[in-house]
């Protein structure tokens, strides 16, 4: 289970750490298991403390045009692009 989740999260976990991690995770999951005691029938999920209308922007070009800033911290770049190990599709 931990291996699959770590794969999904793209986190390399050393083989020898898997059992310990699995124990910790199941302890945490056991702890949160208490939630099942609560009757939540018909309760609308709470996704944000903010209850106002979504705020929007106008369709105006107000940003961009600074590729040097965008690339400033890139670990690897080439000719104005970010560069990554070759992706095979």
């Amino acid at each position: 289970m931990v291996r699959r989740i770590a794969g999904l999260a793209r986190i390399q976990v050393a083989e020898e750490k898997l059992p310990g991690l699995a124990r910790e995770l199941s302890a945490i999951l056991g702890f949160v298991e208490q939630l099942s005691e609560v009757d939540t029938q018909g309760v609308h999920p709470y996704t944000s403390p903010v209850e106002t209308q979504i705020k929007a922007r106008a369709d105006e070009v107000t940003d961009g045009g600074y590729p040097d800033d965008i690339l400033a911290n890139a670990p690897e770049k080439d000719d104005g692009y970010f560069a990554v190990p070759k992706v095979v599709e």
Binding site: R57, D59, G64, G65, P67, I70, D79, G80
Partner: peptide
């Protein structure tokens, strides 16, 4: 607020939000 026009030089129509810099947040275009 970055532009959408086709064919621009690479990474010139990119805002901090589009590059997912830490702490950036989306604001919807109505």
């Amino acid at each position: 607020g970055a532009a959408t026009t086709f064919g621009a030089e690479p990474n010139t129509q990119v805002s901090l939000v589009d590059a997912a810099m830490p702490g950036m947040l989306p604001v919807i275009n109505w």
